[in-house]
């Protein structure tokens, strides 16, 4: 399978501070590829670079086999972008936003009008076509931005935290639409710090921290590699929880916030023990991507 995005040795500095420190990345065609990382890991910077919107301090970038930033125009013509923040045009209505944006791509009038109607349908905004942007809810704005990113029928769609701050209904709708797009053969590249989102959507992902790639693989493979299969979460007094968990076997114990985690290959004995105790609420579940993420990126807070 050929690579849609190919990044080698990317280095990016802001005021002498290195925010991306030698990233290699390859996104196969037709894949949904996730870039995970805490805030400030370099996710957004990486996306800006591959759209030719940010000069680099080192490395080679190719998108559709074209060099960046030299071929930025050609690459952006074939790419759709969902930015992190709302940048809809407040001077226009819903339909006008799509129409005006479509003109930047030089899309012929008839094609544009057809696509505009299809996309409003696709994101469920047909009824609101003539509404002003200020009257839309946060979820509607997000859906419109999503539709706008598709106005040029892109081969690659780049999404920077597409569901941050959305209610579950909109989030699920967008997840469904992303799966539709992947079905239709488009390549998706998304950043997120929602592990559930990454686990549901991504065929492959990288975990980024402090400008470096810590790990790469399919969600299942990463979970298998880095986390024990069973997890017990205990909420309550840490001292009590620690006592109950650590003395139960050879599993791995961690405390983050008000929750204690116990990772193990076989949780039966611990579960039995905890069931006999009062005052501790616990949850027994399979390991997920969040466990991997916290293990790899540590537990201290990021800004």
């Amino acid at each position: 399978m050929s690579s849609v995005v190919q990044i080698e040795g990317l280095v990016k500095r802001y005021d002498g501070r290195e925010v991306v420190r030698g990233i290699d990345l390859s996104v196969p065609a037709g894949c949904c590829f996730g870039v995970l990382g805490p805030n400030g890991a370099g996710k957004t910077t990486t996306l800006r670079v591959l759209l030719g919107q940010s000069p680099v301090n080192g490395g080679e970038i190719r998108v559709f086999g074209l060099p960046i930033p030299q071929s930025g125009r050609a690459v952006r013509a074939r790419t759709g972008v969902v930015p992190q923040a709302d940048n809809l045009d407040p001077d226009f209505t819903v339909a006008e936003n799509l129409r005006v944006y479509g003109r930047y791509f030089g899309i012929p009038f008839a094609t544009l009008e057809t696509r505009l109607r299809e996309l409003l349908e696709f994101v469920g905004l047909t009824e609101r076509a003539d509404a002003r942007i200020a009257t839309l809810s946060g979820g509607m704005k997000r859906r419109l931005i999503f539709a706008r990113a598709l106005i040029n029928d892109p081969e690659l769609v780049v999404l920077d935290e597409p569901t941050t701050g959305l209610d579950p209904q909109v989030r699920h709708m967008i997840w469904g639409r992303l799966r539709d797009l992947r079905q239709s053969g488009k390549t998706l590249l998304l950043t997120t710090h929602y592990m559930e989102e990454a686990e549901r959507l991504c065929d492959e992902l990288v975990i980024l921290d402090q400008g470096r790639i810590l790990e790469q693989g399919t969600p299942a493979a990463l979970i298998k590699k880095h986390a024990e299969p069973e997890v017990i979460e205990v909420r309550g007094e840490e001292r009590l929880a620690r006592q109950a968990l650590v003395s139960s076997g050879d599993g791995r114990f961690e405390a983050i916030g008000d929750t204690c985690y116990y990772y193990t290959r076989d949780a039966r004995a611990v579960v039995k023990r905890l069931e006999g105790m009062s005052g501790l609420a616990f949850l027994h579940r399979p390991a997920n991507l969040e466990d991997v993420f916290l293990k790899l990126t540590g537990r201290e807070l990021r800004d």
Partner: peptide
């Protein structure tokens, strides 16, 4: 404030 150019710069325009 309006970030109109930010949106335009994700299209082929420079």
């Amino acid at each position: 404030p309006q970030k109109t150019y930010e949106a335009i710069l994700t299209t082929p325009l420079e």
